[in-house]
Amino acid sequence: MLSRRHRKWPVGKTRVATFLFAIGVIGLALLSPIDALSDELFSVHMLQHLMLILAAAPLFAFSNAHLVMLRAFPVASRRVLGHAVAAIPGVRQAAHKRASAWIAAAAFVATMWFW
């Protein structure tokens, strides 16, 4: 058995970087001059929406944001939280289905296309 120091965290550096990039996109959309200009120009306001919908949201989804954010908690708290969430019916089955992400992406594209 591997010691605690050598165990690999299930979230790689790429996913952590993607999570941080998503936070950066949100910061750019909501805390930059784009936000100040969005009060005057509707087109810039819609640019904010596109940044949040088409950039930040998929980046969060790809990064497995929930796992990245769990790193902020101590191990004991992560275990308690993990057991509590796993007790919710259907969570374990949904977590193991990779196809659900593709179904969600297809539903998103269809909704945006229809809208």
Rank of each mutant, 00 (worst) to 15 (best):
S3P: 08
A56I: 05
A105K: 11
L70Q: 10
V75Y: 02
S3R: 00
L67V: 03
L31H: 04
S43Y: 03
H45I: 09
A95R: 10
A95C: 03
S63R: 09
D35F: 14
G82N: 01
L30F: 02
L20A: 08
F21P: 00
H6M: 01
A17S: 07
L31Y: 06
M1E: 04
P10C: 08
W9D: 12
A99S: 11
A36K: 10
H96W: 07
H45L: 14
A99F: 06
A56R: 00
A61T: 14
R79M: 06
D39Y: 10
D39M: 10
M46N: 00
A72K: 15
M51Q: 01
A72E: 13
G82P: 06
H6N: 05
G27T: 08
A56V: 12
I53M: 10
H66W: 08
A22T: 12
G27Q: 07
I34G: 00
L41G: 03
A57T: 11
L54W: 02
A72P: 14
F62M: 12
H66V: 14
G24N: 05
A55C: 15
R98G: 13
N64P: 11
A22K: 09
G90M: 05
I26S: 00
A65L: 10
L52E: 01
K97H: 07
A61C: 14
M112G: 10
G12M: 06
M51P: 07
F60M: 15
V80E: 04
F42A: 14
L37W: 03
M112K: 10
G12D: 09
F19S: 06
L37G: 10
K97A: 08
S32D: 06
R7F: 04
A86H: 04
A72N: 15
H6W: 00
Q48H: 01
H49I: 10
L81C: 13
I34A: 01
V80M: 07
A107M: 15
P89T: 03
H45Y: 13
I23Y: 02
R71M: 10
L41V: 03
V109G: 03
H45T: 14
I26T: 04
R79Q: 07
I26C: 09
V44F: 00
K8D: 13
L20T: 05
H49C: 05
F21D: 01
V68D: 10
W102I: 11
G90K: 04
L54Q: 04
L31C: 09
R92D: 14
T14Q: 01
A29R: 05
A56E: 04
P89N: 04
V75Q: 11
M1F: 01
A72F: 15
P74C: 00
K8Y: 03
L20R: 08
V68L: 12
G24T: 06
V80S: 08
F62A: 06
I53W: 00
P10T: 05
D39E: 13
P89Y: 01
D39W: 11
H49V: 13
G90C: 08
A56Y: 02
R4H: 00
K8P: 08
R78H: 03
F108D: 11
A106V: 14
W115A: 14
S32L: 14
A29H: 07
P10I: 09
L41A: 06
I53R: 03
V80L: 13
H49Q: 08
A105R: 13
V25Y: 01
S32A: 12
A105T: 15
L81N: 06
V91N: 09
A105W: 15
A99P: 10
A86Q: 06
H83F: 03
Q48Y: 02
R7P: 09
V91T: 14
A107P: 12
